[in-house]
Amino acid sequence: MFDLSSATTRRAKRGLRREWRLHVLSVFSLSVAFVCLAASLLVVTNLQAIERRWARAGRASVYLKDDATSADVTQLKDALAKVPGVTAVRYVSSGQARDQFAKDDDPKGALAALPAEAFPASIEVDVQADVTDEGLADIVSKLEKLPAVDGVETYQSWTERLARLVRGGVAASAVLAVIVLLSVLAVVGSTMRFVLQRRRAEVEVLRLVGATDSFVKAPFVIEGSLQGALGATVAVALLGAMFLIVHSRIDGELAMLIGVEPSFLPWPFVLGMVALGAILGAAAASLGLRRLVQV
């Protein structure tokens, strides 16, 4: 049985113990880079959740003209109820709209003096979640042609804006990921070159006794990998702590406003980031030690 792995691990442990200050500094630098990436991913995942929530909203508000009669309303409701995909139709009068606004958005009554006419009457239409954008647009275009209808709001524009925001967030995360990658390569690579200089005598001895390149490099690669993984772990832990603080303060209000409860990064993301840190750290150490001390 060969005991190469335990010898390598022992040398890595010894190196970590001896150069712990340098490694701590390196882990701190890496965690700063990773916290930026993790924060952007956190924003993107929550924006995606909001986008999904609003994309599923399946609602349309059909605003009626002021001169629409109750017969028009009844006729419209009946017609809408027969449209495929429509699940519920509800009439909201001007007075009901004002009361709802006062309850949800103006609890202090600052706009209580506004007359009921300021709020147009509408028919709220719920459609099935599986109705496509094209299907909904088709319904809307038909509704807009009816004489009693003043306009139709489908919230699709909001979903599109959110989707654009999410795409922007994803692009920003990709840029940050590249920056993180370069940071890891720079920080771990420099640390390892510095460590190599400090352990020059050790490497010289290894060369003399016939150690292969991989044997010499292995503990440094383990150290680099640990640095990367620890940097990512510290970053996720810091972000988690910040998230908990913010979550406890604004959770209720924010969730009501956006219709989605803010959530932390999913476990696969967290584990993926730690794995990414470990792989990047190992790669950076390996690249940083391309030219080993020659004897």
Binding site: F2, D3, L4, A7, R18, R199, A201, E202, E204, V205, L206, L208, V209, G210, A211, T212, F215
Partner: peptide, 20 residues
């Protein structure tokens, strides 16, 4: 040409550790 930070044993044993 010894590794000063290593113990006497480690300096000797490394020759055999390299061999696995």
């Amino acid at each position: 040409k010894l590794a000063g930070a290593w113990s006497v044993y480690e300096n000797v044993a490394i020759t055999l550790e390299v061999l696995g």
